[in-house]
Lab assay of single mutants.
Amino acid sequence: MADYSSLTVVQLKDLLTKRNLSVGGLKNELVQRLIKDDEESKGESEVSP
């Protein structure tokens, strides 16, 4: 898992935009949104054959 907390808000928003996720909120919220997306993506890849 990436260390999103070391990134700037601009970098976080860029990552969120690329994933089609909301870019609104405080830095901590942006980090949590990326972590949640990582976990959901990981779960999907494990279920797929």
Score class of each variant (00 low, 15 high):
Asn20Lys: 05
Asp37Asn: 14
Asn20Asp: 11
Lys13Glu: 11
Gly24Gln: 13
Met1Asn: 02
Gln32Trp: 09
Leu26Arg: 14
Ser5Lys: 09
Asn20His: 08
Val31Tyr: 00
Leu34Lys: 02
Ile35Met: 10
Asn20Phe: 00
Leu21Lys: 10
Gln32Ile: 00
Leu26Met: 12
Arg33Val: 01
Ser5Cys: 10
Ser41Tyr: 15
Gln11Phe: 01
Leu12Pro: 02
Thr17Ala: 14
Asp3Asn: 14
Lys42Trp: 08
Leu34Ser: 03
Gly25Gln: 02
Pro49Ala: 08
Glu29Cys: 01
Asp14Gly: 11
Val31Cys: 08
Val10Thr: 13
Val10Ser: 14
Asn28Arg: 11
Asp38Tyr: 01
Leu34Glu: 01
Ala2Pro: 07
Gly24Glu: 15
Tyr4Gly: 00
Gln11Asn: 07
Gln11Pro: 01
Asp38Met: 03
Asn28Asp: 07
Val47Trp: 10
Asp38Cys: 04
Glu29Asn: 04
Asn28Leu: 08
Lys27Ser: 05
Val31Gln: 08
Lys13Val: 11
Lys13Ala: 04
Lys27Val: 02
Ser6Met: 09
Arg19Pro: 01
Leu16Asp: 01
Ser41Ile: 13
Val9Leu: 13
Leu12Met: 04
Ser5Met: 07
Ser45Met: 12
Lys27Pro: 09
Gln32Val: 06
Val10Asp: 08
Thr8Ala: 04
Leu26Glu: 15
Ser22Leu: 07
Asp38Gly: 03
Asp3Glu: 10
Asp38His: 04
Leu30Arg: 05
Gln32Leu: 08
Leu30Trp: 10
Leu16Pro: 00
Asp14Arg: 09
Asn28Thr: 11
Asp38Asn: 03
Ser5Gly: 09
Ser41Lys: 12
Val47Met: 14
Leu15Gly: 01
Ser5Ala: 10
Ser6Tyr: 07
Val47Arg: 08
Lys18Met: 12
Glu29Lys: 02
Lys36Met: 12
Leu21Ser: 02
Thr17Gln: 11
Ser41Gly: 13
Thr17Tyr: 08
Leu26Ser: 13
Gln32Ala: 14
Gly43Phe: 15
Leu26Gln: 10
Glu46Cys: 05
Leu15Ser: 03
Asn20Trp: 02
Gly25Ser: 01
Asn28Trp: 12
Asn28Gly: 12
Ser45His: 14
Thr17Gly: 10
Tyr4His: 02
Ile35His: 08
Ser41Pro: 13
Val9Thr: 11
Glu40Asp: 14
Val47Thr: 07
Arg33Met: 04
Gly43His: 09
Val23Asn: 07
Thr8Ser: 10
Val31Trp: 05
Glu46Tyr: 04
Glu39Ile: 06
Leu16Tyr: 02
Val9Phe: 07
Ser45Glu: 13
Lys42Tyr: 09
Asp14Ile: 07
Ser45Thr: 12
Ser45Ala: 13
Gly25Asp: 01
Asp37Glu: 08
Ser22Glu: 10
Val10Glu: 15
Ser41Gln: 09
Glu44His: 05
Asn28Pro: 14
Ser48His: 04
Ser41Thr: 07
Asn20Val: 03
Ser6Pro: 04
Ser6Leu: 10
Tyr4Asn: 01
Arg19Gln: 04
Arg33Ile: 01
Asp38Pro: 01
Ser5Pro: 06
Gln32Tyr: 05
Ser22Ala: 12
Pro49Leu: 09
Asp14Glu: 14
Ala2Trp: 14
Val47Leu: 12
Lys42Asn: 08
Gly43Lys: 14
Val10Ile: 11
Val31Ile: 08
Leu15Ala: 08
Ile35Pro: 02
Leu26Pro: 12
Ser22Gln: 08
Ser22Pro: 15
Asn20Thr: 05
Ile35Thr: 12
Val47Gly: 13
Ser6Val: 06
Gly25Cys: 00
Leu30Asp: 04
Asp14Gln: 14
Glu44Lys: 06
Arg19Glu: 01
Lys27Gln: 10
Thr17His: 09
Leu15Asp: 01
Leu16Ala: 05
Met1Glu: 02
Val10Ala: 15
Gln32Asp: 05
Asn20Ala: 13
Asn28Met: 11
Ser48Lys: 08
Val23Glu: 08
Ile35Gln: 11
Asp38Phe: 03
Leu26Trp: 10
Leu15Lys: 09
Thr8Leu: 02
Asn20Cys: 12
Thr17Val: 12
Thr17Cys: 11
Lys42Ser: 13
Ser5Asp: 12
Ser45Asn: 05
Leu21Tyr: 02
Glu29Phe: 00
Lys13Trp: 04
Asp38Lys: 03
Leu34Arg: 02
Glu40Arg: 13
Ser22Phe: 09
Leu30Gln: 06
Lys13Tyr: 07
Lys42Leu: 13
Asn28Phe: 06
Leu21Cys: 06
Ser5Phe: 12
Val31Phe: 02
Pro49Arg: 10
Glu39Lys: 06
Lys42Met: 11
Ile35Leu: 11
Gly25Glu: 02
Tyr4Glu: 00
Leu7Cys: 09
Val23His: 08
Asp3Tyr: 14
Asp14Val: 08
Asn28Gln: 15
Asp3Lys: 14
Val23Met: 09
Arg33Ala: 06
Glu29Ser: 06
Lys36Ser: 11
Glu39His: 08
Lys13Asn: 09
Arg19Asn: 01
Asp38Val: 05
Leu15Trp: 02
Arg33Gln: 00
Tyr4Cys: 01
Ala2Thr: 15
Ser5Asn: 15
Glu40Gln: 07
Leu12Tyr: 01
Leu21Met: 05
Asn20Leu: 08
Arg33His: 05
Asn28Lys: 09
Gln11Tyr: 04
Lys42Glu: 07
Val23Ser: 11
Thr17Ile: 12
Asp14Leu: 10
Lys18Val: 07
Arg19Trp: 00
Leu21Pro: 01
Leu15Met: 09
Ser45Gly: 12
Gly24Arg: 13
Glu40Leu: 12
Lys36Asn: 12
Lys36Gly: 06
Glu39Pro: 03
Ser6Cys: 15
Leu15Ile: 15
Val10Met: 15
Lys36His: 11
Leu34Tyr: 01
Met1Phe: 15
Gly43Arg: 14
Leu16Thr: 01
Leu30Pro: 05
Lys42Ala: 13
Leu12Lys: 00
Glu29Ala: 06
Ser6Phe: 06
Leu16Gly: 02
Glu40His: 09
Glu40Asn: 09
Val10Tyr: 08
Lys13Arg: 10
Asp38Ser: 05
Ala2Lys: 15
Glu40Lys: 14
Lys27Gly: 03
Leu12Val: 05
Asp37Tyr: 14
Leu26Lys: 11
Ile35Glu: 08
Asp3Ser: 09
Ser48Asp: 11
Lys27Asp: 05
Glu40Met: 15
Ser22His: 14
Glu40Thr: 13
Lys42Thr: 06
Val23Leu: 12
Val31Gly: 03
Ser6His: 08
Ser5Gln: 10
Gln32Thr: 11
Glu39Asn: 05
Ala2Val: 15
Ala2Tyr: 15
Asp37Leu: 03
Gln11Cys: 04
Val47Glu: 11
Gln32Arg: 11
Lys27Tyr: 07
Glu40Gly: 15
Asn20Ile: 03
Val23Cys: 12
Arg33Trp: 00
Lys13Asp: 03
Met1Lys: 14
Leu21Gly: 03
Lys42Arg: 14
Asp3Trp: 11
Leu26Asn: 13
Val10Leu: 11
Val31His: 04
Lys27Arg: 11
Val9Asp: 10
